[in-house]
């Protein structure tokens, strides 16, 4: 019997949800025994593989790289999970949205604010362009399940992954879906 292929992805977020995943502590051994972690920021794999069974996506879609990557993830994964508030709702990452045009924000941060070396970073192909608006994952690709939280608490993550590996949906009611 083949073991389920699990992946986790980090888009526009703080990686706090990945830290929280690590907070599942000794359960990680059980996870390692139950599934293959085929791609993750904590795994040294360069390219997102094919035929992923379950992929947890942390972070909102904030720039062109995020967008492209989200689409790739969707294409290669059977089940995509919005992992944490940024993926689910945009959250802190999306707090720039009310400020409008990203150009203005970049100028404020890199030109107006610093005391020296003021310049907007510009390196095509290296520094990805910001999208006009930060978007939650499900507004860009189809998402199969949602695990909110900022960060999603360790217990909630464990509960969700256990359900998914057993072919069930993560809980959609009760405290498991509390934002924040």
């Amino acid at each position: 019997m083949t073991r389920p292929r699990l992946a986790t992805v980090w888009l526009g977020g703080c990686s706090g949800c990945h830290m929280s995943l690590l907070d599942t502590d000794e359960w990680l051994f059980e996870l390692a025994a139950a599934a293959d972690l085929v791609y993750s920021p904590i795994v040294d794999v360069k390219e997102f593989p094919h035929d992923v069974d379950v992929c947890l996506v942390e972070g909102a879609v904030a720039n062109e790289d995020n967008l492209e990557f989200a689409r790739l993830v969707r294409e290669r994964s059977a089940i995509v999970v919005s992992f944490g508030d940024c993926a689910v709702s945009g959250n802190v990452t999306a707090m720039r949205n009310p400020l409008g045009d990203p150009e203005g924000i970049l100028r404020r941060v890199y030109v107006d604010a610093p005391d020296r070396d003021a310049q907007v970073p510009h390196a095509p192909g290296i520094v990805p362009l910001l999208l006009a608006q930060v978007r939650p994952l499900h507004q860009v690709i189809d998402v199969d399940a949602f695990v909110p939280g900022c960060p999603a608490p360790a217990g909630r993550i464990r509960e969700a992954i256990e359900a998914l590996l057993a072919g069930r949906r993560p809980p959609t009611t009760g405290e498991s879906i509390r934002f924040g």
Partner: peptide
């Protein structure tokens, strides 16, 4: 944005959302 709200954890809106099953 619950994560940075003064009322996080003690908010009627947040509580009602939990009770009504709003996961996104």
């Amino acid at each position: 944005v619950c994560a940075v709200c003064v009322s996080n954890g003690a908010c009627e809106l947040q509580d009602v959302a939990v009770r009504c099953g709003m996961d996104h």
